[in-house]
Amino acid sequence: MAVKVSSEWLNACSGCEISILNIGETILDLIPDKIELVHIPALVDSKYYGQLGDGTKLELPKATVGLISGGVRTEEHAEVVREMRDKVDILVALGTCATDGGIPAQANMWKNEDVLKKIFGDCPTHEPAGHPTEIVPPYTDSVLAVDEVAKVDIYIPGCPPHPDWIADALLALVEGKTEWALPERSVCDTCPVIREKKSAGGAAIKRPLENYTYDPDEPIEKMRCIMEQGYLCLGAVTRAGCAGKSGVPRCIQARQACRGCFGPIRRGAKPMVDMMGALSSIGQDAKSLVDRRALLNRFVGAHKNLRPLPQRGKK
C-alpha cells in the first residue's frame, strides 16, 4: 500500500518543491507505487473547497505524511497548518522557512504596519496608497516557523534542503519509521579547506568585495578557510548537509562563504551568540561586522530571534 503524502507551501518561494523534483529518477521509483501524492498544489489538482469550488470550509485530504514548506505569514497560512496537522500522522517542516523562518523572517525586524506602509506607501512607480484589505488574509503578528503554530514531528532544514535528504526522509517514512533528523554537525565539519585556527586577515572582518584567494586549478583542499582569510563565513554555526550525502558545502564549491541557510546546528541554538564566540576564538573582532544582527540571523528570524528594535527617535 502506498503511503499517502500531502504537501503545502506557505510563505515560500517554490524552491523546496523544485528540490523535491531534483530527487530525479528515484522519485519515479517512489511514485506512485510507494507514495501517493494526495495533495500538492504544484503538481496535483486537489482543492481546498472541493473540485467544484462550492465548499465553504478549507479542507485537506487525510494522509500519513504532511509536508509544509514556507513559514507562516498570514492567518490563512496558520489555518492551513492547523488543518494539515489535523489530517496527517506525521508533520514535516520542509526547508528553512518552515523550520526557522528563512529569509522572509528578516521582515520580523519591522512592525507589520511599517512593512505595509513601506510597500504601498513609498514606491517610485505609484502614488502612496493604502494596503489591500478586502478578502486578502491579514498578516500574523510576525513571520512564524511552522512549529510556532502546531507540533512538528520532523525537520528537514535547508534553503532549499538537498534532494538527498528529502529522499532519505521520505524513504524512512515509507518504511514505517516515524523519526528522522539530520546529524548535529557543522558545515565546517564537512568543509575540506585548510584551517590553522587563526585569522590571517587581521581583526576587522572584511566585506566580500573581492574574490577569496584560491587557485582555480588546485582542488578545494588547497584553499584557505574563508573565515581565516578575514571574511565572514557562517559554517561554524550552521548545520551540515547542504551538499547532500557527499561533497563540498555548496557555497564553498562556488568559492563563496556560507550564510547559514541550513539553520542552527541544534534546534534552539542561537547562531548570533555562537558566531560571536567563533569569531573571537580566531582573533576576529565581531563588532566590526557590518549589519551584524541581520546577517547572523539571516535564515533564523522566526522564534523571536529577530524583532523590531525600539524606535531610536529618528524617522
Binding site: R73, T74, A107, M109, W110, D114, V115, K118, I119, P137
Partner: peptide
C-alpha cells in the same frame, strides 16, 4: 495572498 515584503527587509 502572499506578500513577503522584500522591499522592506
Amino acid at each position: 495572498f502572499a506578500l513577503r515584503g522584500f522591499e522592506m527587509f
